[in-house]
Simulated assay, not measured.
Amino acid sequence: MTRAWILPSLLVLSGALVTTALFVRGSARVAVAVLSLFALLAVLHSPLVFPRSVGAAEAQARNAVDGRPIVYWRPGCKYCLRLRVRLGRDAHRLHWVDIWRDPAGAAAVRAANAGDETVPTVLVAGRAHTNPRPAWVRAQL
């Protein structure tokens, strides 16, 4: 299992435990609601919500061709999730690099952030912007 799936797996496991306890006590409706909530949280914190990630080298090559921004992100990051959700359908117009899957992407983020792996880091026209506002990112498209 990769690091990206640890948090979603823990959420599903925790939800299953709480749901089992509620179901044993006779609260079937509450158990279903709690399990649904934990499942939703697991999906939101999983890589499933984000567009397909590419490697840093591929993202840079695509950026050179089409000029679209590159977003360096990692699963479980609430700021990355906020950016992704607020961009909506426009998120697919960006190049997404998962720094937990791509060491070159992690190195690019560390180089842009004085050694820290602060995400989301958005690369626009060769310049890195750490945790930019979603409206600003949308304007760059």
Rank of each mutant, 00 (worst) to 15 (best):
T2M: 12
T2C: 05
A4C: 02
I6Y: 08
P8K: 03
S9E: 00
V12C: 12
S14A: 13
S14G: 15
G15L: 08
V18I: 14
T19E: 11
T19R: 13
L22Q: 13
F23I: 01
F23P: 00
V24W: 03
R25Q: 12
S27V: 03
S27W: 08
A28D: 03
V30P: 00
A33R: 05
V34Y: 00
L35Y: 03
S36H: 00
A39R: 02
A39T: 13
L41P: 08
L41Q: 09
A42F: 03
V43A: 10
H45K: 07
P47M: 08
L48Q: 06
V49W: 00
R52M: 10
V54G: 07
V54F: 01
G55F: 04
A56Q: 10
A56K: 05
A57D: 13
Q60M: 15
R62E: 15
N63A: 15
A64C: 06
V65K: 04
D66V: 02
G67A: 15
R68N: 08
P69F: 06
V71H: 04
V71E: 08
V71P: 00
W73G: 05
R74M: 14
R74Y: 04
G76A: 09
G76D: 05
L81V: 01
R82C: 01
L83W: 08
R84I: 11
R84N: 15
R86M: 15
G88I: 09
G88R: 03
G88E: 03
R89V: 13
A91R: 10
H92W: 09
R93V: 13
L94S: 11
W96G: 14
D98V: 12
A108F: 01
V109N: 04
R110E: 14
N113L: 11
A114I: 06
D116T: 12
E117A: 15
E117M: 10
V119E: 05
V119N: 01
V119P: 00
V119F: 04
V119I: 12
V124F: 04
V124T: 01
V124Y: 02
V124E: 01
G126T: 04
A128G: 11
A128K: 01
A128N: 06
H129A: 12
H129L: 12
T130P: 00
N131L: 07
P132K: 04
P132G: 08
P132V: 14
P134A: 10
P134D: 11
A135W: 00
W136Q: 14
V137F: 06
V137I: 13
R138W: 02
